[in-house]
Design a protein around this nucleic acid. Structure first.
Lengths: 214, 214
DNA sequence: GTGACCATGTGAACGGGCGCACTAGCGTCT
DNA sequence: AGACGCTAGTGCGCCCGTTCACATGGTCAC
């Protein structure tokens, strides 16, 4: 692995948080070292994949022994950027947006919700779980001022692209989209989506094409 | 494409609902035909990919013209198993479970919530958005009786695997897991996950490794 | 009816990720 | 001290998915 500037595959990045969670469990159970095989079992993947994934982070294991749980946990947290907070803004103060803001585990895990935005002026000025709701017109100015790194879109589909554009204009580098629509962001901006209807429809497909026999 | 029994790649299946949504938009806009290029733009993918994906469904396009929007919409709905309802059970009547049950667009889109389950006996017997809450001990019996096809897990992580096992024992063929933990199901059962914390941590990684220059 | 045009459908090249299977190296027991 | 056992790290072949580019076959104008 090259000293720095190594490129970690997307598929690996997506698995790192799963390993992280497994490691946290091991710490809770006071287990000091773990093998790739055990970690693979916990994360629901192949042991070779675990080793390859972890090798992207560096050589943090000990042959014949395994990985030191706490040390690996620390290194992975560092790599994932979880050693410091990432202020988050939620756009859309409807059912979903409010639920997200009320979800405590959010702030707790290093993603403090520092601002909310809504297009409805009736909601502007209210507080949701202590977080003030601003108008969406002020996204560009305020998000930049507050140093928002991650924006969460919890608006109706029709507003999502406009909101995304505003977030990007404010310098937000990562967008998590809950709106049931495809949005695009410029290169260099990260985009992930959470889409309930989509997941259900995918399951519907497999349910429909289920083998009749057992 | 072989007459029947063709195997549609997972990656394609995951995109079909996105196309479906785009087609629904086109119908709303009274647009009768659409090219792969336009559809690709709407779905945020490559045009060649659209054509290959759609070709798995059959030859529903017309060379020189494009695809008939309504016809393609119908064929895709059929393929996705959306021409009939899929009764859904939600396990976990806490914040998330209740929010999901209250989310109307659920039933509206062909996934009626017909039962809820919770381990807390204090919640058993209550109704959430009109849906009766049963005890998790009764999952196996009741889910089978009600013909539940899709189970949604909205419990704490610690209960998720046990609930999944019960759902599978009840003959549920598809599981959508919201609990922040890895669960496993037997071969032949479909499993998808929605994990907020995981998505945020993935974004955190890219945010941390962002190029300083623009 | 014929030719120009246009978009689908697909063969083939390409690339990334997965997993096997081997090698390297550490700890432990005799 | 030496041999053995165990597990990390990794080279390599394979497979799935993506993309390009072309051939296929319709439509429309004249």
């Amino acid at each position: 692995m090259s000293d720095r500037a190594r490129h970690i595959p997307e598929a690996t990045v997506a698995r790192l948080p799963v390993y992280l969670r497994s490691l946290a469990e091991l710490v809770d159970d006071k287990i000091a070292t773990v093998s790739s095989e055990r970690l693979a079992e916990m994360a629901g993947v192949n042991a070779a994949k675990v080793r390859k994934d972890l090798s992207y982070l560096g050589s943090y294991g000990t042959r014949g022994v395994g990985y030191d749980v706490e040390y690996l946990l620390f290194q992975m947290s560092r790599e994932l950027g979880l050693t410091h907070d990432w202020p988050v803004a939620i756009v859309g103060a409807g059912n979903l947006g409010s639920a997200l803001a009320n979800y405590g585990g959010f702030t707790q895990r290093g993603f403090p919700v520092v601002a909310m935005f809504d297009a409805d002026r009736a909601k502007v000025g209210r507080r949701v779980h202590g977080v003030l709701v601003h108008h969406t017109d002020d996204i560009v100015e305020l998000a930049a001022e507050l140093g928002i790194g991650i924006g969460v879109i919890a608006t109706p589909a029709s507003a999502a692209q406009d909101v995304a554009d505003k977030l990007v204009a404010a310098g937000v580098g990562s967008v998590l989209n809950f709106a049931p629509t495809v949005i695009t962001v410029p290169e260099g901006v990260s985009l992930r989506k959470v889409d309930l209807a989509l997941e259900l429809q995918i399951l519907s497909f497999y349910q429909e094409h289920r083998e009749p026999a057992g």
